[in-house]
Amino acid sequence: MKKVYSALMFLLILSCSPKQEKIAEIEIDINPNAAEGFIGSEDILDTVGCALIPLADTEKPIVRVTKLQVQNSKYYILDENTHCLHVFGHDGKALFSIDRQGKAGNEYLHLTDFHATKENIYLLDFLSKKILVCDSLGKFQKKIDIGEYWANGLSVIGKDLYLINDDSKPQDGAFHFFQIDEDGKCINKLLPFELQAGFGSDKDYASFGNGEFLYCQAPINTVYQVTQDGCKPILDINFGSRALPEDYYTLNLRELLRKGYAKNYVLGIDKIFANDNYIFLKYRYGENNYWIIYDRGAQKVKKHCRGFGPENMYQMGLSDFTVQDGWVYEISPAYDFIQHQKYYTPKPPLEPRYEKELQEVAQRVTEMSNPVLIRYKLK
């Protein structure tokens, strides 16, 4: 089995990139006694530009944020529970919402993903296998039929759309990426696969506005970089003896849990975020979540820990954060934010500025309000 898998991975790497390039490989020691715990993050976060941004209430309240993107000084927030895309100004003011659930050609059954550019907003309907294209103000423009493909995610580079396929085999072949134009015509198919994982990542790709996106799907712990020139592996993470054995790759998550494998092995990378300087990778081992921050310039791990807490700022730990360009955003439900402000005990004491901001925002929102966006600048 191992020889077959190794041969397959070699072919995948060749098919993903026309040029063979050296892959940075990192070995992770995940011994709980050796890993860092919940640490401060002042060496990667700057106090300049950090802010609390309460998001104004919308007609449909935000229940569960599944994606945040920042574009044109606007915040685009997808709530997959209500199938709405909400757009806010840089100050948190509600600009408009896209709520098109239905069966018509200009509607979606399940708003799975989106990507906003300067000109357009692309909405992925996983169930109807189509993409709705809206202008920058949310007005419907056209529909792109993607019935020949299968897409769990969506990214846009230039004028090309990239359909991200985790583990399905559509009629056009088993490829992780289908590069299409705005008419739905296939331009390229990238990263073929044969082995199907029985489970997927929570957030398996990182898309940002520099002409690339990164992809890493459990249980194969290789990070791929996708650009208009193709895709290539850039980072391979080796969990050593705690990596999930290849013989278990085809088991689904229920079987892995039932047999206890989820307690003994790392099932793979759960989330990936990135910008020009860092790659953030989250994985689970045993009962704990761990984060890896990989420095892209130095090509080494900068931090490997259980979590982050900006101690000299708002002291609200980074747990469900996202990375966009040069910023880190934590989305805190209003109820959690109010409880934190009401009961937390600062250690060390907060500077007056941060304490004042926390109090003012806590007084502005109610437990039923939309979330508060907490913004930090990456160094």
Score class of each variant (00 low, 15 high):
166 D>T: 14
166 D>Q: 13
170 P>T: 01
172 D>F: 15
172 D>P: 15
173 G>I: 00
175 F>E: 04
176 H>C: 07
176 H>I: 11
178 F>M: 08
182 E>W: 01
182 E>D: 09
182 E>Y: 03
183 D>L: 12
183 D>V: 10
190 L>D: 07
198 G>H: 02
200 G>M: 06
200 G>K: 09
200 G>T: 14
201 S>L: 00
204 D>A: 14
207 S>V: 09
207 S>L: 08
208 F>R: 09
209 G>F: 08
212 E>G: 10
213 F>G: 01
214 L>G: 02
214 L>K: 03
217 Q>Y: 08
224 Y>W: 07
225 Q>N: 10
228 Q>V: 15
228 Q>A: 13
230 G>V: 07
230 G>N: 06
232 K>F: 10
233 P>V: 00
233 P>A: 00
233 P>G: 00
234 I>G: 02
235 L>D: 05
236 D>I: 08
236 D>K: 10
237 I>H: 02
237 I>K: 03
238 N>K: 06
240 G>D: 06
240 G>Q: 05
241 S>C: 12
241 S>E: 15
249 Y>L: 05
249 Y>C: 04
251 L>G: 03
252 N>C: 11
254 R>N: 15
257 L>V: 15
257 L>I: 15
257 L>P: 11
258 R>V: 07
260 G>P: 04
262 A>S: 14
264 N>C: 13
265 Y>A: 02
267 L>H: 01
268 G>V: 03
269 I>F: 03
270 D>F: 09
271 K>H: 12
271 K>D: 13
271 K>C: 13
274 A>P: 06
274 A>R: 04
277 N>S: 15
278 Y>N: 10
278 Y>R: 07
280 F>C: 05
286 G>M: 10
287 E>R: 10
287 E>I: 07
287 E>C: 14
288 N>K: 15
289 N>K: 01
290 Y>W: 01
290 Y>G: 15
290 Y>I: 03
